[in-house]
Simulated assay, not measured.
Amino acid sequence: MDGAVERVDWLTGGSRRDAATERIYAAAAALLDERGFEAVTVEDVAARAGCSRATLYRYVGGRDAILDGVITRAAAAVATEVSEAVASLNGSERIVEAILTSVRAVRANPALHTWFAGSRTRSVDDYLASSPRLGSIAAGLTGLAPTDAAAQWTVRVVLALLTWPMPDPAAERQLVERFVAPAFA
């Protein structure tokens, strides 16, 4: 709100903007889980959220902003889990655990798992692989510099394991320890 102080809404008990935004993102996440990104329209999300398209655009933005918001929220939940798992680790050990915990957490997150279990389009893969937000999250979790290309590379390693899973977690660990860890030793 451009410089204005937002009041506590009597109906929501908090910020009306926050309540609307969360409702829209929850509706979008459910639809993306059910249909996939390419099959969901702004009209679908507005209808599921129980608001008009104008309200959706005012609070969230268009289709790309919806995708970004859903991914950012899901990634934040994964980042919290990964952060706790790697808190006491450093160097290549931290990077290995960050990658493997990310893979486990994404697979356990309904909003994200559906994307990787099913087919995705090239545009979604390109978005995920080059997302500055995901790169920034990866940098923070691995201890790499945010501008370091290695942060984007670790995102791509996670995406590769999600897209082409190994037979079991032990095989994935062995692969990451053998080929990724030496790059950061």
Rank of each mutant, 00 (worst) to 15 (best):
A75G: 06
R120T: 12
T114R: 10
Y59I: 03
D33G: 13
S83F: 06
L141N: 02
T163I: 15
I24H: 00
S92N: 10
A160E: 15
S131C: 13
G69M: 09
A26F: 05
P182C: 03
T147P: 00
A39P: 00
T72L: 12
V5A: 13
Y57K: 05
S123A: 12
R133M: 12
R178W: 03
G69W: 06
S83W: 00
V42C: 04
G135S: 11
L31G: 02
L141Q: 09
P167N: 01
M166N: 05
R107W: 10
V155K: 03
V45G: 02
F184H: 13
Q174D: 12
S136Q: 08
L161C: 13
G50R: 06
R23A: 05
A108W: 09
G61E: 04
W164V: 15
P146G: 13
L134Y: 04
A30W: 04
T101H: 10
N109W: 11
C51E: 12
N109E: 15
E172Q: 09
A183W: 00
T114E: 10
L100V: 08
G143W: 01
D33L: 14
A185M: 08
R16A: 07
R63G: 03
T142N: 04
L56Q: 04
T147S: 14
A74D: 11
E22T: 06
I137A: 14
R107C: 12
S119P: 05
L32P: 03
V45A: 03
V96D: 02
G69P: 07
R156Y: 08
G143H: 07
R107Y: 00
T154M: 09
A151K: 07
A87H: 09
T101V: 14
Y25V: 08
E38R: 01
A27H: 06
A28S: 00
V180I: 09
A150W: 04
E22S: 02
W164M: 13
S136A: 15
V157P: 05
Y25R: 00
R73F: 08
G62N: 07
W164A: 14
V82F: 02
S52P: 03
W153H: 05
Q174T: 12
A181W: 03
A111H: 11
L112M: 15
P132K: 10
I71E: 08
T154H: 03
W115M: 10
A74L: 15
Q174Y: 06
T147V: 02
T80L: 15
S119G: 12
T121M: 12
R48H: 07
A105H: 08
A151C: 09
L112P: 03
E97N: 06
A111R: 06
L100W: 08
Y59Q: 09
L175V: 09
L112T: 08
A75F: 06
A65S: 13
A28R: 02
V5M: 11
E34L: 08
S92I: 06
R173N: 01
D44S: 01
V124D: 10
T147F: 10
R173S: 04
A111L: 00
V176T: 12
D33C: 14
R53A: 02
E93M: 05
V82D: 00
L67P: 09
W164G: 02
R94P: 10
G69T: 06
A171Q: 11
